[in-house]
Amino acid sequence: MDVVVCVKPVPLSEQEITVREDGMDIKREDLKYEINEWDNYALEEALLLKEKYGGKVTVVTVSSEQRNPEFMIRECYAKGVDEAIMVLDDVLDELDAFAVSRVLYHVVKDLKFDLIFTGVQAFDDNYASTGATLASLLGVPHASIITKIEVSPGEGVARVNRELEGGLEEEVEVKLPALFTIQTGINQPRYASLLKIRMAMKKEIKKIGLEDLGLNRETILGWRRTFIRRMYIPKVKKETLYIKGAPEQMASKLVELLRDKGVLRR
């Protein structure tokens, strides 16, 4: 089972995120990046398949320098990834979903794979379309929001569960090679030990420039189909009553408010 996993470095979710003065991007200076939560589950699923069936796990990332993708890649290596391919160019932060999918397509089309995994969505841009777009460009079947995978290499198919709404799932049989977008909770991702991360420092990361893919900035910028007008912090729709003060004061005020509203039994 050769598995390609697409991984994206995204800002850590608990950070304060603010908009740049010109409203065209977020302020990125002090942000820390890590592997997208969904991709971390996708990576684990690939490693589990490798442990079961053998084969190779390759991670692919398309990133700007400022997202510090090397750190993410080192962690991937420390967990057992065989090869990492990194397309690095600052222009990549200016792309939209479709353009990024096409860049990924140019990387992945020449790789050998039985499966490709992406996350269901990236925490930052939230498109939830890269996986299905990539599969369609490659001409391989796909299934989205996967919570369980059983491959039958002999039959050339995988049986997967797709998560629907409200706790319902459906089982789908998919011909291989195929692409799956992986949902959180499908497994329990392993941690990379510091020692292993340090050992992974020596491993080579295959760095690819756009020109190595036969592309240039102008071409890929031309693939964009959406253009940012402005970014802003959404207006609050509901009037929220904020309770302030020391913990004791906040707690007693809350008790009082809840009593007034009649939601406490006594």
Partner: peptide, 15 residues
């Protein structure tokens, strides 16, 4: 659309 887990809104022109 909303990005960053709903913390930011973004307005886009589509080609």
């Amino acid at each position: 659309r909303q990005v960053y887990g709903g913390k930011i809104n973004v307005e886009l022109n589509v080609q």
